[in-house]
Computed example of a mutant assay.
Amino acid sequence: MLFATKEEAIRFLKYNADDIEHETGKRPVRTYYCTACGGWHITSKLQSSDYHSLVKRCGETDGKKIFDEVSAIKGRRHGIKEGLCRKIKDLRHIMRFETIDLERCQSLINELIGYFETVMGNGLEEETSVMKLFSKFSHLCIQFIEKKRLQAQIV
């Protein structure tokens, strides 16, 4: 399908992704500009997170920065989702105690916010799975705020 503008393609994607997935088994996840036809299309292929693809797409400086952040997310894991999941589990683990290390939690929360911005902002993972992880992360943030408030009352 050809769209004249990026906005048209995004709007079509937003309202039709479920139907397309149901019909084809593939869920469109992003738009892209086609130099061959001069128009916009939708695709089910995620953006690549390898170094050369990121540099080509975002330029040398930004591409390297995004690649470094993706590498930090993945760690020794094979994928971005697995890396985010590990970080969320780390946060859940340090928050399980009645009294928590506020600085350590805040640092990990800030780190995760940056990671989610990078992953979602660059279309590096399928949106619904990242949103599920973000939902878990959001609940932990709410718990952190509550524990922080309670710890402040105790002191």
Rank of each mutant, 00 (worst) to 15 (best):
I42S: 04
H93P: 01
G121V: 04
S49H: 12
T31P: 12
I42Y: 03
S53T: 12
E111K: 15
E146P: 01
G114S: 05
S44A: 13
I20D: 04
G79E: 11
K87C: 07
E117G: 04
I73G: 11
K132M: 01
K26L: 09
G123Q: 03
I142F: 11
C37M: 12
E23F: 13
F67D: 07
F3K: 09
D18A: 11
S44C: 03
L13E: 03
I66Y: 06
H93V: 08
K89I: 12
R149Q: 06
C105G: 10
E127W: 06
E8D: 09
A152H: 05
V29K: 08
T99W: 05
I145R: 07
I80L: 09
L102M: 13
K136D: 05
I109V: 13
L102F: 10
Q106H: 11
K148F: 06
F97L: 10
T35Y: 05
C58V: 01
L13D: 08
F12Q: 09
F144K: 02
I154R: 10
K148I: 00
E127N: 05
S135H: 02
L84H: 04
F67N: 10
H52G: 06
Y33N: 08
E60W: 11
T61P: 03
R149C: 06
G59N: 08
C58G: 02
R86Q: 14
K26H: 14
V130R: 00
I42F: 04
E60K: 14
D68Y: 02
I113H: 12
L91I: 07
A4L: 08
S107I: 07
V130D: 01
F3C: 06
G114Q: 08
S129N: 04
K148Q: 08
F137S: 01
S44N: 08
C58W: 10
G59I: 08
T99C: 02
E60C: 01
Q151R: 06
M131D: 03
E125S: 03
G75Q: 11
G79R: 09
A36Q: 10
L91F: 10
Q151N: 06
L133N: 00
H78V: 05
L2P: 00
S53M: 03
H22Y: 05
I73L: 06
E7A: 13
L46P: 07
Y51N: 12
I66W: 07
E8Y: 01
S49G: 02
L108D: 10
T31Y: 11
L54T: 14
E111W: 07
F134W: 09
I10P: 00
L112I: 10
V70M: 09
D62M: 12
T128M: 01
G75D: 07
T61D: 12
C37K: 14
M95N: 13
I80P: 14
T61Q: 15
R11M: 00
I10L: 13
S71V: 10
L140H: 09
E146Y: 09
I113V: 10
Q106G: 05
C58E: 15
G63K: 14
Y32T: 11
Q106N: 15
W40Y: 15
I94Y: 03
F12P: 06
H139Y: 14
M120V: 00
S71L: 05
V70G: 13
T5M: 06
F12A: 10
